[in-house]
Design a binder for these strands. Structure first.
Length: 464
DNA sequence: CTATGGCACGGATT
DNA sequence: AATCCGTGCCATAG
């Protein structure tokens, strides 16, 4: 069904494989860049406005997903519907420009990346010349919302004094998510701390602990830390408790620690998802709908004019031929990528349906290797397809796709549930017994590790 | 003596 | 080949 009407049998060249691989490992926004640069550098490639379904190549009326493909689910009727979803409104502005024409708030996209999100907040308060600085800073954030370049470099590059850069940065840090644009996790947390201290009381050692003891804190060496700072153990524990509960060292991460189910908090999206999973018209009894984001609408194809031009003899014939082949290869690889992604998600969603609908407890342990044999592809294919991609669940949470392959997440959440319900602080060995009773055999040491991962304090300093 | 964290090793996973 | 993860052992705090 993928075969085209053109009988151009293209052998599986190494170039083909290599490019498919790289395309597969790109996230949606990276893919957009890739396509754009390819489009710009290769005259034989053309983007038509015509909307076609990337799955079946039928023309589409609007921007909506293909109705034929959506309704015609190839597998079981109760199975999820998986399709490629083209959207050109995906990334409103990739490299944020400092232009004034940013005021198109009427078309608020559902998802917005972190730089855009922050820029929109501060833009009104920043005078135009500083906006360039702001935009520049914001394009150099990592996934966690921390700055990846030194402010000094920015100052030099833009020929402005340091304090200008710092003032802009300060403004960014006080936008949502609080602390974004910090250089270190410490700095981010201090910003949050300052903000919180205006409305509530803070354990008095908190600031000192953050400033001087983050490494020890993350290793939970409370007593050593108390010794180093010359204060009581209780002070350190109080501070630690406060920090894990209220501060987020990685402002860019959408969630940290607590996972309240019925949370009404403004669920913001800081990183555009590569895949969106939802229920058909939000009805949880309906089957799942899986959209694999294609960052550009329209159809990518080989420019037919170019193909014709090749028939005529020309001195550039060799170059043109070269371009043409590259273009054909590119669209083919892109199709290949979409096809693989679709098969992957189809299977993944089928396996982890309970997890998607009912939460982390129901995540089934799954390895990329086992999926690869089911789909009859190489392991590395799955790895590349999964890594650096994010998925939006029906509850609007965005998670890395690798979470679907987390070996121990279900155990960790069960563990959390037990501890939440505990009447009396349970020691690690007691927890082992309880888990064993539920059919999970794990070592005591492992329980301790899981606790640490979830940021749960040891038994002797938990209280009802 | 018990509970827990650090370190490090081996096997699984990527 | 490199990395991740579960575990066992031992030191240390309470």
């Amino acid at each position: 069904m993928l075969q085209t009407h053109r009988p151009v049998m293209r052998p599986l060249t190494t170039a083909h494989l290599a490019q498919t691989m790289t395309l597969l490992s790109l996230s949606a926004d990276e893919l957009k860049q890739q396509i754009e640069s390819e489009l710009a550098s290769n005259p034989a490639l053309e983007m038509t406005d015509e909307r076609r379904c990337p799955n079946c190549q039928r023309p589409l009326p609007g921007n909506s997903p293909c109705p034929t493909c959506s309704s015609a689910s190839p597998t079981a009727p109760d199975d999820a519907i998986v399709f490629i979803s083209p959207r050109d409104d995906f990334h409103p502005s990739h490299g944020i420009s400092s232009d004034e024409d940013q005021a198109d708030d009427n078309v608020a996209p559902v998802t917005e990346d972190l730089p855009t999100f922050v820029f929109r907040q501060i833009a009104p308060d920043v005078d135009p010349q500083k906006r360039t600085i702001a935009a520049y800073l914001l394009t150099h954030l990592d996934e966690d919302g921390l700055l990846t370049i030194a402010p000094v470099e920015v100052a030099q590059y833009h020929h402005v004094p340091m304090d200008v850069v710092e003032s802009v940065r300060n403004m960014i840090q006080h936008a949502e998510p609080l602390g974004v644009g910090s250089i270190t996790t410490q700095e981010a947390m201090l910003v949050q701390l300052d903000h919180l201290s205006e409305s509530r009381s803070i354990p008095h050692m908190t600031r000192t602990v953050i400033e001087q003891g983050m490494d020890m804190l993350s290793r939970r060496q409370y007593s050593e830390l108390a010794h180093k700072l010359g204060c009581s153990l209780r002070d350190v524990k109080e501070a630690a408790q406060f920090i894990t509960e209220n501060l987020n060292p990685f402002p860019g991460r959408s969630h940290w620690g607590d996972v309240h189910e019925g949370e009404n908090a403004p669920l913001q999206v800081y990183r555009s998802p590569d895949v969106i999973i939802s229920h058909i018209n939000e009805d949880s009894t309906k089957p799942l709908m899986v959209e694999i984001i294609m960052p550009l609408a329209g159809t990518l194809r080989v420019n037919p004019l170019f193909r014709n031009a090749l028939r005529q003899n020309s001195e550039y014939k060799e170059d043109w031929k070269n371009d043409l082949e590259r273009a054909a290869l590119f669209v083919k690889c892109l199709q290949q990528r979409n096809h693989t992604m679709r098969r992957l998600m189809q299977r993944l969603v089928a396996i982890q349906k309970d997890f998607i609908d009912h939460g982390e407890v129901y995540l089934k342990p799954l390895t990329r290797a086992s999926l690869s044999v089911e789909l009859e592809v190489h392991e590395s294919t799955i790895s590349r397809a999964v890594s650096s991609k994010t998925v939006q669940l029906p509850n609007r949470r965005i998670i890395p796709m690798s979470k679907f392959f987390d070996r121990s997440l279900n155990l960790r959440t069960i563990l959390k549930n037990i501890i939440v319900q505990e009447g009396h602080p349970l020691s690690d060995s007691e927890l082992v017994k309880l888990l064993d009773a539920r059919g999970y055999k794990i070592a005591r040491r492992t329980v301790a590790k899981y606790r640490a991962m979830e940021g749960i304090l040891p038994a002797h300093l938990r209280h009802a």
